[in-house]
Simulated assay, not measured.
Amino acid sequence: MGSALETLCGQAYGAKQLHMLGVYLQRSWIILNAMAVLMLPLYLFATPILRLFHQDAEIADLVGRLALYMIPQLFAYAFNFPIQKFLQAQSKVVAMAAMSAVALVFHVALSWVLVGPMRMGLVGLAVALNASWWLVVLGQLVYILMGYCPGAWNGFDCLAFSDLFGFARLSLGSAVMLCLEFWFYMFLIVIVGNLENARVAVAAVSICTNLLGWQIMVFFGFNADISVRVSNELGAGRPCAAKLAILVVLMSSVAIGLAFFALVLAFRDVYGAPFTESPEVVRAVASLGVVFAFSLLLNSVQPVLSGVAVGAGWQWLVAYVNLGCYYLVGIPVGYLIAFPLRGGVQGMWGGMLSGVGLQTLILVAITLRTNWDKEASEAHSRIQKWGGSSSAAAAKVSGD
Rank of each mutant, 00 (worst) to 15 (best):
L247G: 10
L129G: 03
Q215A: 15
G235A: 11
L68C: 07
L42T: 08
L178S: 11
Y320E: 06
V37W: 08
F106H: 07
V108D: 06
E181Y: 04
L211M: 14
F292T: 15
A36I: 02
F222W: 07
S132M: 09
V230M: 02
V192W: 04
V282G: 02
A309P: 00
A36N: 01
G166S: 14
G324W: 01
S354D: 04
S206R: 03
P82F: 03
Q11T: 08
R268C: 12
G22P: 07
G193D: 05
A76H: 01
R51S: 09
F184E: 09
T47S: 10
V356G: 03
A312F: 00
S278G: 03
A89V: 13
V176R: 04
G147H: 01
I246W: 01
Y320Q: 10
A103F: 03
G307E: 00
F260R: 07
L110M: 10
M70D: 00
L323T: 01
F161N: 01
V308K: 00
V192P: 07
M1Q: 07
G155Y: 00
W349C: 09
G22S: 05
V321P: 06
G173S: 13
S162T: 13
A60I: 06
V93Y: 07
D269L: 11
W133F: 14
C158Q: 07
A103H: 04
S390Y: 14
A338Q: 00
Q55E: 01
M120C: 09
S231L: 04
I207V: 15
L265M: 13
G350S: 07
Y143F: 05
E6G: 11
A168L: 10
F165K: 13
L234R: 05
G10L: 05
L18D: 12
